[in-house]
Amino acid sequence: MEPKLKLVFADDCVFQQAMMKLLIKRMEIFDLYFTCNDGAELIEKLADAEVLPEICILDLHMPNMGGISTAREIGVRFPEIKIFGYTASADDEEIEDFKRHGASHVFSKTDPAAMLIQIKTILKPVFTR
Rank of each mutant, 00 (worst) to 15 (best):
D91Y: 09
K124Y: 10
E93R: 14
D48E: 15
L52N: 09
E54W: 06
Y86R: 00
E93A: 14
K21D: 11
S108A: 13
A18L: 13
S69K: 15
A90N: 15
P53E: 10
A18M: 12
F127A: 07
M19N: 12
A40E: 13
M1A: 11
N37P: 00
E93I: 15
K120Y: 12
L32S: 01
H61Q: 14
A10G: 08
L42G: 02
A49I: 04
L22P: 00
N64H: 14
V76G: 03
A49G: 06
G102N: 11
D92T: 14
F9L: 06
T70K: 04
A88T: 09
F98E: 05
D59N: 11
T110F: 11
G67H: 07
Q17P: 07
L123F: 04
I57P: 08
F98T: 05
F34D: 02
D91F: 05
V106A: 04
S104F: 10
S104E: 15
I57A: 07
A90W: 09
E73S: 13
H61L: 13
I57G: 06
A88W: 00
L52F: 09
D111Q: 09
D59L: 08
A71Y: 04
I122V: 14
I122K: 08
L32N: 02
I68L: 10
A71G: 09
V126W: 07
L7S: 01
V51I: 15
F98G: 06
I29W: 09
S89D: 13
E80A: 13
S108F: 09
T87H: 04
M20F: 12
E93N: 12
I74Y: 01
D111W: 05
I117Q: 12
Q118S: 07
M62K: 05
I55Y: 04
Y33D: 09
T128N: 11
A49H: 05
K4Q: 14
G67S: 08
E96Y: 06
L116G: 06
E41M: 06
F127H: 12
L42H: 03
K6T: 03
K124H: 07
H105F: 15
K6Q: 11
A88D: 05
Q17D: 08
I43K: 03
I122N: 08
H105R: 15
D91A: 08
E28M: 06
L46C: 07
I74M: 04
Y33I: 00
G39E: 03
F9M: 08
H101L: 05
E28G: 13
K6G: 11
A10F: 07
S108P: 08
H101E: 14
Y33E: 09
P3H: 08
P79R: 10
Y86E: 00
S89W: 05
P125D: 00
E50C: 00
L46H: 07
V76N: 10
I117K: 13
S69W: 08
F84Q: 01
D12R: 02
D111I: 05
M62F: 03
M62E: 05
Y86P: 00
F127V: 09
I122G: 02
F9S: 03
A18Q: 14
D11T: 02
I95P: 00
S104Q: 15
K124L: 11
E44F: 07
K4E: 12
P53F: 10
